[in-house]
């Protein structure tokens, strides 16, 4: 009997713009076509990597059967929304995200009762994003929100309508790399990096998560919105202990300036932040286990990163300490995403 799994990061994509156009007003659809909008390739993972030659994007009709054995629920992440971070027509970004969601809702959700959608939003227009979240507020097929990061840090007021809507509907917000960080103006800078060598992006992308965790905690977002959860997927996790030590250390020194932070920052992280492990890379498994042991037990969750997976669920779980395996595989995601994830009643 396989271990029960919840897949927190299963990538889905629309293979062709024609599939999205029916989900826009006609005038917008015409504009997408007229201006030669280029649909981001579903075959390319926005954080790096692409499908190998000969392999194809998963198809809704067959994808369910190909889920890892033991999967009880899979969160569908429409990763084609990530590149909006680098686009400037912010209204177009929202129209596009809405179309992606309708595509996923109609093509994917009915295909397997374990599928749940992460509502794709563009962070450029927070009020429009909040409207999009509200549209799925009562839909049990939606269990999360997903968006890329802008240069503006998540603690700043820009994002507040998104977070308020997320907290209102108890929908965790997943952030995921867009692949534009460090190169495209308007997306997060990566420190020291320009458009240079490919490896620099992978080496530094975790910085964007660190910055935004610091911003969320120090600027008191979780004090205003105690029901909010923010999930970082695709940034790794092995850097987290040192970051938590520094967050707590600076707070001990500088609390006078952020007095609303009444608990150590690491406590807010344990309560409100989650990390999806979707790629082990060359981190030695023993080091992964040691590092995971330093973290709160509810923090880490497994995501397959399918169809771009580099590790099997078994490999990821083997790199976790024994006491955390069931939590990483299932329990933490069940707690974080709540009843919508596992309910049988689908619209």
């Amino acid at each position: 009997m396989s271990e029960a799994l919840i897949d927190c990061e299963y990538h889905v994509a629309a293979p062709d713009l024609q599939l999205l156009l029916p989900y826009m007003e006609k005038s917008w659809a015409a504009r997408f076509v007229r201006s030669r909008f280029s649909l981001p390739l579903g075959r390319e993972h926005p954080g790096g990597g692409s499908l190998t030659e000969g392999s194809s994007l998963p198809d809704p009709a067959t994808a369910g059967a190909a889920l890892a054995a033991g999967t009880r629920a899979a969160l569908l992440v429409p990763h084609q929304v990530m590149p909006v971070a680098g686009w400037t027509d912010t209204l177009l970004c929202s129209v596009y995200a809405t179309a992606l969601n309708r595509y996923v809702r109609e093509h994917w959700i009915p295909a397997d009762r374990r599928f749940r959608m992460a509502i794709a939003i563009s962070p450029h227009e927070p009020e429009l994003a909040a409207d999009e979240i509200d549209r799925y507020g009562e839909d049990v097929s939606a269990a999360a929100i997903v968006m890329p990061l802008l240069a503006t840090h998540l603690g700043q007021t820009h994002y507040r309508p998104i977070f308020k809507a997320a907290a209102r509907h108890r929908l965790p917000v997943i952030v995921h790399p867009s692949g534009r960080e460090g190169t495209i103006v308007g997306t997060p800078v990566l420190s020291g990096m320009g458009p240079r060598h490919a490896g620099e992006y992978h080496s530094l992308i975790w910085q964007a998560a660190v910055t935004n965790i610091a911003s969320l905690v120090y600027d008191g977002v979780f004090i205003d919105l105690p029901d909010l959860r923010v999930v970082f997927a695709g940034f790794g996790f092995e850097w987290l202990p040192g970051v938590l030590w520094h967050l707590d250390m600076e707070w001990r020194s500088l609390r006078i300036d952020i007095p609303w932070v009444t608990d150590p920052p690491s406590v807010y992280v344990a309560r409100h932040i989650r990390i999806v492990i979707d790629d082990l890379g060359l981190t030695p498994p023993e080091a992964s286990r040691q590092i995971a042991n330093m973290l709160a037990e509810g923090l880490l969750m497994w995501g397959s990163n399918s169809p771009f997976a580099t590790n099997s669920a078994a490999e990821v779980l083997d790199a976790m300490p024994e006491k955390l395996r069931a939590k990483v595989a299932f329990g933490n995601a069940a707690e974080t995403f709540g009843s919508r994830l596992l309910t049988e009643a689908l619209a």
Partner: peptide
């Protein structure tokens, strides 16, 4: 010093 408050109140 300062004490606990709503965010951005001192």
């Amino acid at each position: 010093s300062t004490v606990a408050s709503r965010p951005f109140e001192y």
